[in-house]
């Protein structure tokens, strides 16, 4: 059996608006009618138990890479193999149905992840406890502050007990004690030989949580290695104004 929890080989993703398939028509009518090469040949192997950070400017391909790993986006070329149960932190801020209470959204979150009713029922109370929403959990989501929604999303994602947890830009949610608690949860996941994949613009997060950082730019991996040096190289790149 392979030593890797995630193996990404030669993955290419091109966003092709429909209009770009129609010659001329696309150029004339649609301003967004160009192809975007979001990932152009990415290889990445993540061993079990590694926490990995993904770094890069806006539009570098971070979210696309996360989607490909999560299996929600099918690449144009290449393969992705994932061994273990995935959970993605619901890109916090939306929830499922803002008209419904936090509690109903917890149910939706668990069932969407493919849990049975019984499994979901067992998770509801731990999730409420983790989120620290208390009685607010029975209020509609649209009365929540953004921090409360984010806490709820985080609580659901962590409580699903995934082998691989994917986090797209978040983390600074809740007060200091909630942040400590979420950090603990992520560390314990990695401690159980699970994997953490975080895309973020907060470089501090990588140093705190990640074993390795992958720096993406223009859909390619520029550098991958220990957080310190990789972040340094990225900073130098940004300062030098390359590609600006």
């Amino acid at each position: 059996m392979s030593d890797y929890a995630i193996e990404v080989r030669g993955v290419r993703v091109t966003y092709r608006p429909f209009s770009s398939k129609v010659p001329l028509f696309g150029k004339m009518l649609s301003r967004s009618g160009q192809e975007v090469h979001a990932l152009s040949g990415v290889d990445l192997a993540v061993p079990f138990g590694e926490a990995i950070g993904i770094l890069g400017r806006n539009g570098a391909g971070k979210s696309t890479l996360l989607r490909v790993i999560a299996g929600t986006l099918e690449p144009d070329a290449g393969t992705v193999e994932v061994r273990g149960r995935l959970s993605t932190l619901l890109a916090l801020g939306s929830g499922f149905n803002a008209d419904l209470t936090g509690r109903r959204n917890i149910w939706l979150g668990c069932l969407a992840a493919g849990l049975s009713r019984k499994e979901a029922a067992a998770l509801v109370d731990p999730i409420i406890e983790f989120s620290e929403l208390d009685s607010a959990v029975d209020r509609p989501l649209n009365t929540y502050s953004s921090g409360m929604v984010a806490r709820l999303g985080f609580a659901i994602g962590v409580s699903l007990q995934p082998d691989i947890l994917i986090i797209d830009e978040v983390l600074a949610v809740g007060d200091a004690s909630f942040r400590d608690k979420s950090r603990e949860a992520m560390k314990s996941l990695v401690g159980r030989a699970g994997n953490l994949i975080i895309a973020s613009h907060q470089l501090k997060v990588f140093i705190e949580l990640c074993d390795r950082v992958v720096w993406l730019d223009g859909g390619r991996i520029m550098e991958a290695g220990a957080p310190g040096p990789t972040i340094k190289a990225y900073r130098r790149f940004i300062k030098s104004g390359m590609g600006r």
């Binding site: 499922f96 149905n97 008209d99 419904l100 109903r104 149910w107 939706l108 069932l111 969407a112 493919g114 049975s116 009713r117 979901a120 509609p140 649209n142």
Partner: peptide, 21 residues
């Protein structure tokens, strides 16, 4: 079929959420 509870919950959510406000 494995996602039937999710379907039910989504539909129920739409029904009860539609006029929640």
């Amino acid at each position: 079929w494995g996602w039937r509870s999710f379907i039910r919950e989504l539909a129920f959510g739409n029904i009860s959420g539609r006029h929640a406000g």
